[in-house]
């Protein structure tokens, strides 16, 4: 446990002492803030234009719902930004150590590979959670001007934590596979995007294949969370995916011990 803490705090320090964390957080918040604001203003415009009519027409047009049209929309675009950002967070975790040769030190030290891996994983996950947590400000703003339903917001954030863990585990695996950070970024990005878009091909596949492809899709499982429904199968999907990637990572790292 102490070893884990040591690795964890070392990684956290390296994020926060260098400008990396700030730049990533700043750029991410700028982008998501910009998107949030635009989505909100668009919704506000609709409210002004159609507000009266929507009530008169009843079921004729979709209700102007803050959660459906702002919160869900915002979550929908934010996960795509994460798709681009997470590879940058994870790329150096192992690749840098391998490039610098410091991985040999870690391997020869009495720290277990799992501890190293978990330390790095949770450091990255903490940074991710902090940045995600900062976006809560937007919903405080919403609360100030309207009355959002906090249930879906809560589940949406839950979904983000699961999604982030999955993304980061993929990133760590990619980082462990190579000593080149650019390769790590591209590998991560490629894998994430593949699983992102995988259910697209479901519409051209046979019924059973389609079901499996749908199931493998990252967004498919996020949808329930973003709508406000917690389903155990989604949780199991994300957790098992994360676990699987992390497991492979330890195998890959440990393979250095016996590889010639």
């Amino acid at each position: 446990m102490r070893n884990f803490a040591a690795i964890y705090s070392k990684e956290m320090r390296s994020y926060f002492v260098s400008p990396v964390a700030y730049v990533i957080a700043g750029v991410f918040l700028f982008l998501s803030g910009y998107l949030f604001r635009n989505i909100l203003m668009q919704f506000n415009l609709w409210c002004l234009q159609f507000g009266q009519r929507a009530q008169q027409m009843g079921g004729q047009m979709p209700a102007l719902n803050l959660n459906e049209m702002v919160v869900t929309q915002f979550f929908g675009v934010m996960d795509f930004i994460w798709l681009l950002v997470i590879p940058m967070l994870t790329m150096r975790l192992f690749a840098e150590e391998k490039k610098n040769g410091t991985i040999e030190l870690l391997m020869t030290s009495p720290i277990r590979t799992v501890e190293v891996m978990l330390g790095k994983f949770f450091a990255c996950f903490s940074l991710y959670s902090i940045i995600v947590g900062l976006t809560l400000v937007y919903f405080v703003i919403l609360e100030a001007y309207g009355s959002p339903d906090w249930g879906p917001i809560f589940t949406g954030y839950m979904g983000y934590l699961f999604l982030g863990a999955t993304f980061i585990s993929v990133g760590i695996l990619a980082s462990a596979l190579t000593e080149n950070q650019i390769v790590a970024v591209l590998l991560t990005f490629g894998m994430l995007l593949l699983f992102w878009l995988i259910d697209w091909s479901a519409s051209f596949a046979g019924p059973t294949a389609a079901k499996i492809l749908h199931y493998l899709s990252f967004i498919e499982h996020l949808e329930d969370f973003q709508r406000g429904v917690i389903d155990s199968k989604d949780v199991i999907f994300y957790l098992s995916f994360t676990f699987f990637c992390l497991f492979l990572t330890t195998r890959v790292i440990e393979s250095r011990r016996w590889r010639r």
Binding site: G151, P152, V229, I230, S232, V235, I236, F241, F243, F244
Partner: peptide
């Protein structure tokens, strides 16, 4: 991992937070 997901898909619990 596949087995876990298969079981998870079969016996799932849902909770609606809206």
């Amino acid at each position: 991992a596949g087995l876990v997901n298969f079981m998870g898909d079969r016996y799932n619990i849902r909770h609606d937070m809206t």
